[in-house]
Amino acid sequence: MLLRSINAMIIFVTACLLFACADKQNFDQYDDLSVTPTVTSSLVYVESPEEYINNTAGLDFYTQDFNFDAFNEAFFAERVLDGSITYELENTTSKPLEITLSFLDDADNVLDTENFSVDPAPTAVLTREVFYGGATGRSMDIIRNTSAFRVAARNLGDNTSVSGLPDPRIIFRSSARFRLRLK
């Protein structure tokens, strides 16, 4: 009986080895594999108290170009598919203000411009989402070639009034959300 069992095992193993098989595999599926994570991060934050605006003569109370290499880093620029940038403008000062954010390339050429105008306080927080890529978004080349931002802030009101709200200021917030192709 035991011998039969052993024989059966030997036959089984031999059969396993001789007739080992595998379900049909289709490695061409690898071409269809798509890995496209969506990453998000804050971009630029600008804040100015009303006191500083009042103390600055002229229309433009702040203009600054500054380097921003996140978008034209090779890893990002070569993989980015589409996405959006969300802006938020909060004005608790007593004056109408205008903020302009320009996207600049390496040669300081303006690739794109986003203008924001807000009324004096009290006013709602201005929120805007701008899409890039896809069928309806702006060109992704704007993002891929951006290497600097220019922020320009204008006071469209007076230089004397002070808001009755506590700690009056203009705050500009922004964040980016982009889809990347890793595979």
Binding site: S42, V44, F66, N67, D69, F149
Partner: peptide, 22 residues
């Protein structure tokens, strides 16, 4: 903790050549 490039006036004007990104 990273909240992006921060420009807080008037402190940001102390160094007009500042490279905020770097």
């Amino acid at each position: 903790v990273n909240e992006g490039v921060e420009i807080i006036l008037p402190n940001a004007l102390v160094d007009p050549t500042a490279d905020f990104w770097q």
